[in-house]
Design a protein around this nucleic acid. Structure first.
Lengths: 125, 125
DNA sequence: ATACAATGTAGAGTAAACTCTACGTCAAGA
DNA sequence: TCTTGACGTAGAGTTTACTCTACATTGTAT
């Protein structure tokens, strides 16, 4: 029911170097067995999945670290964590809006190129 | 009708170090005056605005460099440039879709937190 | 018993995109 | 004339997030 770092690496898609780096940064601290080998749990799988989601939405490691620290302090920090997530959702929302705006501009530019190229073709001999 | 690097920096919001870096990377090559000072044009303003848009949509400098190289080769490269922009629009679209997905998941997580916190409050003395 | 694959730590190296430092030149105002 | 501030180049330094190397240990298969 638990994973060596190699197994965990395959299960999560993160390299073992990355996992050790995440541990160094206190994002995830697996248990150790009697010979000091890391033992990741099923819960760690879910936690990494969440970390990946936060990363994918542009949250920097520093920020994820803060979240991880709260999480490590247990249920007393629930509302603080929710606060963080709500702020993150806010900025994500804003970013999506901006990207959509940029996409519209890109569309315009492409339409302009299409025009230019059509003209060029017309005036060919 | 043209700008020194300092004026251009203010006009575009990019630092002068960044502008020199962009020049080093062949993104933008301003004219020089008789004493070797850079002279940016009105057209350069528009070009930087476009570069900023490409950057804001996640295009790496390397890729922008390719675009800039095509642009420097004039009208013969119009369709190649359009091709690039269309590909970029495609990936931007995909990215926006993914972010929206992540946003939905974040919403779920937040709703879950809200539940948890409500429960906790209920069971207080 | 031994080879070999996986794991451990500490620390160096990498890539992207700036950002800054050092030092030299030059034009214009007090 | 002197000084000050903007500009020039070359190259070093920074930040983020890994990624890799070197070398020691340990678990497992033969």
């Amino acid at each position: 029911m638990d994973y060596s770092i190699g197994e965990f690496s395959k299960a999560t898609g993160l390299g073992i170097h990355t996992l050790r780096y995440y541990e160094h940064e206190n994002l995830i601290i697996p248990l150790r067995n009697s010979s000091n080998r890391r033992r990741y749990s099923e819960k760690d799988i879910a936690w990494i999945a969440f970390i990946k989601r936060l990363k994918a939405t542009g949250m920097p490691i520093k920020e994820i670290k803060k979240y991880a620290a709260l999480r490590a302090n247990g249920d007393a920090t629930l509302s603080e964590r929710m606060e963080m997530l709500m702020q993150h959702r806010q900025s994500l929302n804003e970013r999506i809006r901006q990207l959509q705006e940029h996409e519209a501009m890109l569309d315009e530019k492409i339409a302009f190129y299409r025009q230019e190229i059509a003209c060029r073709r017309e005036s060919e001999p």
